[in-house]
Design a protein around this nucleic acid. Structure first.
Lengths: 197, 197
DNA sequence: CGTCTATTTGAATGTACTCAAAAGCGGTGG
DNA sequence: CCACCGCTTTTGAGTACATTCAAATAGACG
């Protein structure tokens, strides 16, 4: 008879388990390092200027990662929802304050893993090197596909492809955030949508 | 008294050595897996449609990696010169034919490491997991910075920043390839340059 | 020196942006 | 549960940034 409550780390263990097999002890080692955080809608998982020390796994909810330039313009870099990782890895690795902001678009629960803990973990359980290799490898591949999209397709095509690739997400987040991710203005996205419903 | 010829794998060992320390035996294991290739100017390290099985380290010369769309438009994704790695990792990992093309811009020497060998190597010498984690991590960070550039800066600004960041490279490669990398036409790059010499 | 390709130049065009205002929609409180 | 308020989306006019096409010039390499 189930209690009805899922073990709090089941989702992240499933995520890790997709790439490496862990013993129960290793699972314990790992989950002991995770720090849960609840973030209200429109709250922040990370703000530019604050110390960036962690990668965060989204257990529930949805966030967007963006960069803000001097004129206050926002460039949407990524979305992350249940089962995805987010973070300002560049700043965390360099030991510098965050340059990126991570904002919750819904009530969101995340698990933080600090980079110090990550390094420890990799030394104690070398399998984790592999996991994070695959994680960054995947992030790299996704970023490269997005580069290609920005370089060679017009806005309308980028929008259509995004909707095909992430149909759920395109319904889930407000259009202004989609526009920022696609590299266009909300007004122009609206015009694009009128043509392609 | 030196022979005047540098050991053929010195450059790649130095590159790996920046992140992990190898014993002489481990160095031997690694270099035994590398397959050298010489590519003439405007020859190809990899062509779209061919099997993509390797990552390649540039010992000498300079290459560009680009994607070609249905209309034949090229999107410059990366340059690689002495001391950098290149490859179509996405295709190689998926076991599918290359979608990217890697073209030599000068007479170039590369060392190929197949992904099968990479996996073997990681199992025999787990330190290599770490090396490739850091390699992909770095690639991810660079790709993310480029995304930000494309999303929030106009062409002129992207060009100026590129010249500041890679002054040598901006002299080394033809402008048409630079333009493709910056996401603009050669004609417009020419106009931008007239204003900012 | 001659050929071939890269770069420059200019005019016409198109794609996407800015600014302003109206319409729509959703979350919140009454 | 409904109505209101505020934010998001839509609409439209005017503009800017970047492209396309064509042709002239400059540079590189054999």
């Amino acid at each position: 008879m189930s209690t009805g409550t899922r073990p709090p780390h089941a989702a992240v263990l499933a995520n890790v388990g997709r790439h490496i097999a862990l013993t129960p002890e290793e699972q314990g080692l790992f989950t002991a390092l995770l720090v849960p955080q609840h973030v209200a809608r429109f709250g922040y998982v990370l703000r530019a200027g604050q110390p960036a020390r962690t990668l965060a796994f989204v257990v529930r909810g949805c966030v967007r990662t963006f960069a803000t330039d001097e004129q206050g313009r926002e460039a949407g870099l990524a979305f992350a929802w249940e089962g995805w990782w987010c973070g300002d890895a560049a700043s965390a690795l360099a030991g510098r304050p965050a340059t990126l902001t991570i904002q919750a678009l819904e009530a969101t629960d995340v698990l933080h893993l600090s980079l110090e803990h990550l390094e420890h973990l990799c030394q104690q359980v070398p399998k984790f090197e592999r996991f994070f290799r695959l994680l960054f490898q995947n992030g790299f591949l996704l970023a490269q596909r997005r580069l290609q999209a920005l370089l060679q397709w017009p806005a309308e095509e980028r929008y259509r492809r995004f909707c095909r690739q992430y149909p759920r997400l395109s319904q889930r987040v407000a259009q202004k955030y989609l526009a920022s991710y696609l590299g266009i203005t909300p007004e122009f996205l609206s015009a694009v949508r009128k043509k392609q419903p």
